[in-house]
Nucleic acid binder design. Structure first.
Length: 189
DNA sequence: GGGGAGATTATCT
DNA sequence: GATAATCTCCCCG
């Protein structure tokens, strides 16, 4: 399989969010298989780019696809997104840890593999991702993406933790993965 | 093992 | 001054 390139992200966030399930994300020497994602775009009241309103925080979303959009939330956590076309983005919600487990456990202060990367805040802490990485290309170190070899069955559900547009089914994942932030009550689609 | 409070700050109105 | 795409701990039973 070819490596994932910039064209991979030059489409809508839902397509990318599904295509990312099963791919491996590396950050430095740590990384894992993406098992959970969510899609956001300018038509979505829950999105930072809703209504195409540009601010200092969301500037990266309006730039070229294939870059990391990292933001700070609840005064505590960082969240990692991949920018797609037209100011849309995919939130990376969970990984199955595969590389650099010891380093991730050290950064997390927890060595349970199921608790290392099973949430957007957790995986940023595990990988060491912070605001200084906002805007980085996904195709240059320390970031790297490795394509999946087979297409997995994708489960769909409503997104998590939202107060706006909480009913949109824009969360995607591996239904039976033990590394999800939460399970998928809905059947795989 | 489930529910709820509290943490803590960048960003925007 | 309000809000936020989260997490952990503590309480309960």
């Amino acid at each position: 399989m070819k490596p994932i390139g910039p064209r991979f992200f030059a489409r809508d966030a839902d397509a990318v969010a599904r295509a990312l399930i099963g791919t491996t994300l590396m950050f430095g020497k740590s990384g894992g298989i993406i098992v959970e994602t969510e899609a956001y775009d300018t038509t979505d009241p829950a999105s930072h780019s809703y209504g195409e309103r540009q601010t200092r925080r969301n500037a990266v979303m309006f730039g070229a696809p294939g870059h990391a959009y990292v933001y700070f939330i609840y005064g505590v956590h960082w969240c990692l997104n991949f920018v797609c076309k037209d100011a849309s983005a995919v939130l990376i919600r969970a990984l199955e840890p595969t590389h650099g487990l010891a380093a991730m456990a050290r950064r997390r202060g927890n060595d349970d593999p199921r608790k290392l990367c099973s949430g957007p805040g957790k995986l940023c802490e595990a990988l060491g991702i912070t605001g200084v990485h906002n805007g980085l290309s996904l195709f240059a170190p320390p970031l790297a993406l490795i394509n999946r070899s087979r297409r997995p069955a994708i489960a769909t559900g409503v997104r998590i933790g939202l107060t706006k547009a909480a009913d949109l089914p824009r969360r995607y994942g591996l239904a039976n993965s033990p590394h999800l932030s939460r399970g998928f009550p809905e059947l795989p689609i």
